[in-house]
Nucleic acid binder design. Structure first.
Lengths: 236, 236
DNA sequence: TTCGTCTATATTGTCGACAATCGGAGTGAA
DNA sequence: TTCACTCCGATTGTCGACAATATAGACGAA
């Protein structure tokens, strides 16, 4: 329930407004879920047909996605889904470490007791999901995004929220869908989330920042190893 | 000279590619320089006429600018130039502090000796400009952007460069054009820049980050006061 | 075979016209 | 006067057709 609510925040409103907005939403979803593969070329006419609209609105949607770096466009040569290579992901996680650390530090002083309590309850539901194992690691991953986004909101810094919410997370989701199948690290991650919430409850911004930075750093190391293995496999 | 070169990086290529790209560039320039006032409504037909193109490409350009948060759009009600109120600017400077601090820390280990030397020479030319006073504070302000952007490049983190280059700086430039008339603080800023370069030369990332954060924090305090005075004046 | 060229085809870029929607002027009644 | 309603103009949203450009394949010469 809360997951759905926050998803709406993460991926914008579904079906309303102009056709271009709808197209942008559906395309973003398709890209993030991997339905559209990385590097895949996006044919305007074909997509317009599939969405039941003209090429005009669709082109506007592509321009919008270009702005959020979900696609790359080359004049007269079409637009393609962005490819997340190792370097790009490394850069993203580096920035995330700084940004989410900052969000945590601010959240420690800005969030209300109520919000922190909700955060704690969110973790309870995550723990629940993990216990009845197997059952879609996917949702756990989504739940993780919820957790991080709530903290970004707690910072009360609109610019920060936007950078972490609308832009970075879209790319992160792409990455997660790629790696979430061999889900590991959910339990230590939950543990770290709990530590962070504890720091927030104590209003200890410095500690919260430190823990969050460590958490994200660890996540990157884990994903990095996963990519190594994938590359080994595909090489062999 | 180098200013021009880097400006090309900051505000993208001028006249090439599709009409939509050209329009996006010209609009961004007009917004940043204040030729288009904050909050001003952007009439599609009128702008298309002025740029000598159809409304199609122009709409795509607006969608692009929407993506970089230079304009805000409301369905069926048009798009307007974004307004930078005090809260927004405060948020921006907060994020900048974290991001540019990070850039400095990375740059201290990633930049080549050659790049650092060039940075130092850049400051020499700034000092020159300041000495022959009066002469357009504008260029000094642009030079300042150069300095910061070069350090972002030095971080070797593409995501960071993009966030600091393509997005934030556009907004910052808007702000500068508003406040640069009553230029103060150029000399202490130069001093701080010199300290930062010194830290880079010593490959001391921690120190470089600290100095940069302090520098930006100071800049915000200065701008904040300036805004206060402006508001007082307009209130009286 | 292999390279270069050249043509056909598909795809992108652009325009003009039409439909849908919004804001405001004007009118009338309480 | 003031509120509500209606209608009209202006502006945005959408579509289809055309022009410009790049991609792929065939063809021929070295």
């Amino acid at each position: 329930m809360s997951t759905i609510g926050v998803n709406a925040m993460l991926i914008q409103v579904p079906e309303q407004g102009t056709l271009a907005d709808v197209a942008a939403h559906r395309l973003a979803h398709s890209i993030v879920t991997g339905e559209l593969a990385q590097g895949q070329k996006l044919n305007e006419a074909e997509l317009a047909e599939r969405f039941g609209m003209g090429r005009g609105p669709l082109r506007e949607a592509l321009r919008h996605l270009e702005g959020m770096r979900l696609v790359t466009r080359i004049p007269n040569a079409g637009t393609r889904v962005v490819v997340l290579d190792r370097k790009t992901l490394s850069d993203i996680y580096g920035v995330r470490e700084a940004l989410e650390g900052m969000a945590c530090r601010l959240a420690a002083t800005q969030m209300t007791d109520d919000e922190i309590a909700k955060l704690s309850k969110l973790l309870d539901s995550h723990e629940e999901q993990i216990k009845k194992v197997g059952g879609k690691v996917y949702s756990q991953s989504e739940g993780d995004l919820d957790f991080h986004f709530q903290i970004a909101r707690g910072s009360r810094n609109e610019m920060l929220m936007h950078m972490l919410g609308s832009e970075q997370y879209q790319l992160l989701r792409m990455c997660r869908y790629r790696t979430s199948r061999k889900a590991t690290r959910t339990k230590p991650a939950l543990q770290q989330h709990r530590q962070i919430v504890a720091a927030l409850e104590q209003r200890d911004g410095e500690l919260a920042e430190l823990l969050m930075r460590r958490h994200i750093h660890g996540a990157w190391k884990s994903i990095s190893e996963m990519i190594d293995k994938e590359e080994e496999e595909s090489a062999a």
